[in-house]
Design a protein around this nucleic acid. Structure first.
Lengths: 229, 229
DNA sequence: AACAACAATATTGTTGACAATCCTGTAGCG
DNA sequence: CGCTACAGGATTGTCAACAATATTGTTGTT
């Protein structure tokens, strides 16, 4: 009976596995920005040695997910609203490019799957199910990057997304946003099916930037609440 | 009299400084793709401890500059032509965005400086000086990213550029490419001075992709030579 | 009670030694 | 001559102990 979730339970988790674990905790908001990541703590919870934990934390620092100060250790980095804005703009440019390339290069199967996911998302909109919509949305964007045949960009976007992972879901709790996103997807899908890369690109860019706009509105609301509370 | 080039000569270089040193060696082609980076070697040449060297190598791995295999250590990663193509496409999208933002946000001084650099580059073209053209070219692109007010994208592009740094210079040894690049710059500059972000963006994208086309041609030439030799 | 100086604890940084693995050169064999 | 098996050295992976620093708790003074 294995003690941990990791494959090599004998030798303990590797640095990469520990990094994945921390990354996940951050993405699921179990580790929140500003929270300190004490080495000993991570050691106990993952079963890895301290050495490997340090290794993992350094990787995460290189990814920009974690801040390491001398003699103060690692803490989850806090992305400012301005940084979020920049991340979104970068995403918009890169995913736009992927949409264009998907239109050019994707296989028949990938197009079919894209259509299938889109239909499932429409379903989620009707039922008002933000979680399933968010999950399908992630699949949708992932599939487009996958089908664009550009793993380099895919990797960059994934890294850019990690610190704002939860934000990608947050906006979906407003029905207005759900409808708007679904409409955007429809536009993008049509451009792809029409084999119009340029249209797909601009539509995707607008879609991502629309997400940013919703987020900015949410953010200013939160600040308003902060002032009252 | 300091022993090394690093600021804290007493405590030895930090991991970040070692990473910078290695990155530089790679950029200057003193470390070539495939070359193994033996820890002890780096230790001696930088004066850092083995621990810090390992730290630095892991960072470089996260950046995608270095490959680390278990029990075989680090080696300089070799970017395939396909990967280079992807890097260029990502650059095109991101630098295009920066050109648009530069047009919107850059200060009067930054515009003036851009013009000044462009004039100096024209000079290099006339004199047929590839090295100075390459250096000015790097300044030119850097200035545009700087003036776009988007450090996140700037960081991403810098990381994308590192493994292909030398390629950015290689094409300039053909006079044809020099003239073509200078013409592109002129187009971009005009769009910026006309306050036309969209035009600046498309011009910049075309410029970067033109660089890729030249490179592809060079690459196939090299392959041809390989077959003969 | 508020505050400063100091001691105790917790946490991180660094080093060195040892184990595990790979690479290389050599000898033996067909 | 070509090939495999095997040692020896080289290189990396891992760990535990120690040093340096930050954080917390305590005490004494005003």
């Amino acid at each position: 009976m294995p003690k941990s979730v990791y494959t090599n339970s004998q030798k303990g988790p590797s640095a990469a596995e520990i990094a994945d674990w921390i990354r996940n905790q951050i993405r699921c908001r179990r580790f929140v920005p500003g929270q300190r990541l004490v080495e000993f703590d991570v050691t106990r919870r993952t079963g890895g040695s301290r050495f490997k934990v340090r290794e993992a934390l350094q990787r995460l620092q290189a990814e920009g997910l974690v801040d390491i100060e001398e003699f103060r250790g690692a803490s989850v980095r806090n992305a400012s609203m301005d940084e979020v804005r920049q991340l979104y703009r970068a995403r918009a440019a890169l995913e736009g490019l992927c949409a264009a390339d998907f239109t050019r290069k994707a296989s028949r199967e990938q197009r079919a799957k894209l259509l299938k996911i889109a239909e499932a998302m429409e379903n989620s909109v009707d039922k008002g199910a933000p979680e399933s919509f968010g999950s399908l949305n992630a699949q949708w964007h992932g599939l487009i990057m996958d089908g664009s045949g550009n793993p380099v960009i895919q990797g960059v976007v994934q890294r850019l997304n990690t610190p704002i992972h939860h934000l990608l879901f947050e906006t979906f709790y407003r029905a207005e946003r759900l409808r708007s996103a679904a409409a955007d997807h429809k536009t993008i899908l049509e451009a792809i099916m029409d084999n119009d890369p340029a249209a797909a690109e601009t539509a995707m860019r607008q879609h991502v930037e629309a997400g940013l706009k919703f987020l900015s509105r949410l953010d200013s609301d939160v600040h308003f609440e902060d002032q009252i509370g």
